[in-house]
């Protein structure tokens, strides 16, 4: 059983988002980068499934050298080896093309990743990789159980979930509660230093939808406070001023 987990290197969820260079670049000053929270769920489940099946788990990132500590963390959490595709992840299609190439080369039975990265929120890469590899893809997956090559999943839909059955190989974009996040222990951190981390070059440079400029939302005006003993006033404001009732 060979499992591939793809991770992203993204600003911590509490980060204040700012841009520089005339709003064309993300301002990383003072920002702490983490494994994407959804990728962290995928990684945790991948480690459990590797332990269950006794296979091999590879973690992959598309990113430049500054993403390496994030990838090492995936090794510390339990991945056996890592691949870094040495490129700036320019758009979803670019990232999906790299993953599809190295996934084909590695012959993985199961490919997991987060449902979306929390920077660009596209949630497209798993589906694109699925189509490129002619494998079924599922997202957002909240549960994934393996029995031989049979896979039982639940996928979140509006207001509920679907229970699905499929067979390996397949791709899943994961979210909670698929597994509990794992925190690396000291042994994991030590062994991560010596686990193989292969740096490879991108296979194509093609993009389809690159960002040219960023923008912050307009600042919010200050809140209008209503006395707690005069709630009828709130209803009037919602109806006549905000016009939302």
């Amino acid at each position: 059983m060979k499992i591939l987990v793809c991770i992203t290197h993204v600003p911590d969820t509490t980060s204040k988002i700012q841009f520089t260079a005339d709003n064309t670049k993300f301002d990383a000053t003072g920002v702490q980068f983490i494994i994407g929270p959804y990728d962290d769920y995928a990684l945790a489940r991948a480690v459990e499934l590797r332990d269950q099946t006794g296979g091999k788990l590879t973690a992959l990132i598309v990113g430049e050298v500054e993403t390496e500590p994030t990838l090492r963390k995936a090794l510390a959490i339990g991945a056996d080896e890592a691949i870094r595709v040495n490129a700036n992840p320019k758009d979803s299609f670019f990232v999906a093309s790299q993953i599809a190439h190295y996934a084909r080369e590695g012959g993985y039975d199961l490919i997991l990743m987060g449902r979306e990265s929390i920077d660009f929120n596209g949630g497209m890469v798993h589906g694109m990789v699925g189509e490129l590899l002619n494998m079924p893809s599922f997202s957002p997956v909240m549960k994934l159980e393996l029995e031989g090559t049979n896979v039982k999943m639940s996928r979140e839909i509006e207001g509920g979930k679907e229970i699905l059955e499929a067979t390996l190989p397949l791709i899943a974009g994961c979210q909670e509660p698929i597994a509990e996040w794992k925190i690396p222990n000291m042994r994991g951190i030590m062994s991560a230093r010596t686990k193989p981390l292969n740096v490879v070059e991108p296979v194509s440079n093609e993009t389809q939808a690159e960002v040219s400029r960023y923008e912050l939302p307009p600042a919010k005006g200050s809140v209008k406070l209503i006395d707690k003993d005069n709630v009828a006033e709130l209803v009037k404001l919602l109806k006549n001023e905000a016009k939302v009732l």
């Binding site: 299609f93 596209g122 589906g127 694109m128 699925g130 189509e131 893809s137 939808a209």
Partner: peptide, 23 residues
């Protein structure tokens, strides 16, 4: 955008060689 729409659109982006923008 929806749970199904997102998943379908990603596959279509490859099938139709179409640049996909979400949100």
């Amino acid at each position: 955008k929806s749970s199904l729409g997102d998943a379908v659109a990603a596959r279509l982006s490859i099938k139709l060689q179409a640049g996909l923008v979400s949100n």
